[in-house]
């Protein structure tokens, strides 16, 4: 069986097709370069001296390599503190998602439920209500509950995510029923079925969940700036936005050095685990 796609080996023997195919590859290469170029530019600009970043026309490679920019970048704001906040948010959100949504999706998928349809509706309809329409009421609600300026304002609502619920439920739907029957016959309770069978089997879907939760913890800057008022509670993204992107007096090269420091960890993680991550994203499907 020949490995073919839309084009066959026979097509590629024709000259016109071959030219077209080469043009296509060239365009795909160009696309890849435009994806990678800004990343490299950020890093290299972080190494130039300030006069050089501001010179016109800009050059790609630095003339002098100023590694000391990264010292200045590291000390400009308290990066470790903000990083800790981001990781705190990520960890708490993850724990909350696994426990609350894991239990609920296990119940929806595996257990007897009265009024199943109504219960599913209660959870799933929220998926179709655009979040911007209740953005401000959501803020007011957290304020009414006295959660502003506390990490619980992230952690508790993290359990209210219908998309993750659906993701987990679909996964549990795919686990064979016999395994649970066998455990029940051996006298396992539903809780130990969940903890000792369902959770270990769902590590792949939890990993997918972790990608999404991490991405939002690492990315969100606006929402945290609304609900956190103390600077020392900001996650990394919000801090970068407030003190680096909005800063007027910060030298451009130091700015790029800070951006590089923030950008590198997720890129490195992505490149190391890309096979795994892309597969995980596929598990997440369209509804992201």
């Amino acid at each position: 069986m020949m490995d073919r796609g839309i084009l066959s080996g026979y097509d590629l023997k024709r000259k016109r097709t071959r030219i077209g195919y080469s043009v296509m590859i060239a365009i795909a290469l160009l696309m890849s370069i435009t994806m990678i170029y800004p990343v490299l530019t950020t890093m290299l600009n972080g190494l130039k001296d300030n006069a050089e970043v501001n010179s016109f026309p800009p050059k790609f490679l630095p003339q002098s390599w100023n590694w000391s920019n990264f010292d200045a970048a590291w000390n400009y704001i308290e990066l470790p503190l903000f990083l800790r906040n981001t990781l705190l948010i990520f960890g708490g959100n993850m724990l909350m998602s696994i426990i609350v949504l894991g239990l609920a999706s296990f119940s929806l998928s595996r257990l007897n439920l009265p009024y199943r349809r109504a219960i599913e509706m209660f959870f799933m309809i929220t998926l179709f209500i655009p979040p911007t329409t209740y953005l401000i009421p959501n803020f007011l609600n957290l304020k009414d509950l006295g959660l502003l300026d506390s990490f619980f304002a992230f952690w508790l609502p993290a359990g209210a995510n219908a998309f993750f619920l659906l993701l987990l439920k679909n996964f549990f739907d795919g686990i064979s029923m016999e395994i649970f029957e066998a455990a029940r016959i051996d006298g396992a309770s539903e809780l130990s079925c969940f903890i000792r069978i369902a959770v270990p089997l769902s590590l792949p879907i939890f990993a997918t969940l972790a990608i999404f939760v991490f991405a939002s913890a690492w990315n969100d800057w606006f929402w945290p700036s609304l609900i956190m008022h103390k600077d020392s509670h900001y996650p990394l993204s919000t801090a970068i936005y407030k003190y680096v992107i909005q800063a007027k007096m910060l030298n451009l090269n130091i700015r790029f050095a800070i951006l590089t420091l923030v950008m590198l960890p997720p890129i490195v993680v992505f490149l190391l685990f890309q096979r795994f991550i892309i597969r995980g994203l596929h598990l997440g499907g369209v509804k992201g």
Binding site: A28, M31, S32, M35, I36, P38, V39, T41, T42, A215, W218, N219, W221, L236, S237, I240, Y241, V244, I245, R255, F256, L259, V262, M263, P266, I267, F270, L271, Q274, I278
Partner: peptide, 19 residues
């Protein structure tokens, strides 16, 4: 090509704003 195309998704948006 896949990795290159997905790369900007991995960068925090605030970095992209600055960039």
């Amino acid at each position: 090509f896949r990795v290159a195309a997905y790369l900007p998704n991995v960068i925090p948006v605030v970095v992209l704003y600055g960039l």
